[in-house]
Amino acid sequence: MRVNRILLSSALVVVALVVQVSVLARLHLPGAVPDLLLLTVLGLALVYGHVGGALVGFGAGLLADLAPPADHAAGRYALVLCVIGYLAGLARPENGRLKSATGPMVVVVAAAIGSTLLYAGVGALVGDTAARHVGLVSLMFTAALYDLLLAPFVVPGIMALARRADNDPLAESSSPSKKATDITSGWISAGTGLKLGGQRGGLGGLKTRARTRTARVGRIKGVKRL
Rank of each mutant, 00 (worst) to 15 (best):
V134G: 13
G191H: 10
A60T: 08
L149N: 06
A210W: 08
L194N: 09
A88G: 02
V134E: 13
S22Q: 14
K195I: 11
L161N: 03
G123Q: 08
V108C: 06
P169M: 03
A88P: 02
P30Q: 10
L17T: 12
R92H: 03
V13K: 06
R92D: 05
W187C: 09
V47N: 09
M1T: 00
A112F: 12
V14D: 08
G127K: 04
M159T: 01
T192I: 11
L118R: 01
T208K: 04
A131V: 12
A130Y: 14
V134F: 12
C82Y: 00
A67T: 15
V14M: 09
L170P: 00
K179F: 12
V155D: 08
G135I: 00
R5G: 15
R216F: 01
G191T: 12
E94C: 01
V15K: 03
L46F: 01
L98D: 03
T181M: 09
A111D: 00
R5K: 15
L125G: 03
T214P: 01
D65N: 05
L196Y: 09
K221Q: 13
L37A: 11
T142A: 08
A160I: 12
V83H: 00
K195C: 09
R164P: 02
V223G: 06
K99V: 15
A32I: 06
L79Q: 04
S189P: 02
L87P: 08
P68S: 06
V47I: 14
G222C: 11
V106L: 10
V33G: 08
G57A: 06
G201Y: 13
L98Y: 12
G49F: 05
P176A: 07
V126I: 04
V107T: 01
L98C: 04
Q199G: 00
E172G: 02
G135W: 12
V80P: 02
R213G: 09
S174M: 14
S173W: 15
L206Q: 13
V83K: 04
I113P: 05
V14K: 00
H50E: 12
L66C: 07
I6Y: 00
V107F: 06
T142C: 10
R163Y: 07
I84E: 05
L170R: 13
S9K: 03
A25H: 12
A124K: 01
T184L: 15
Y119P: 05
L46E: 02
R163D: 07
L36N: 09
G205W: 15
P152Q: 06
V13E: 05
R97W: 15
G61D: 02
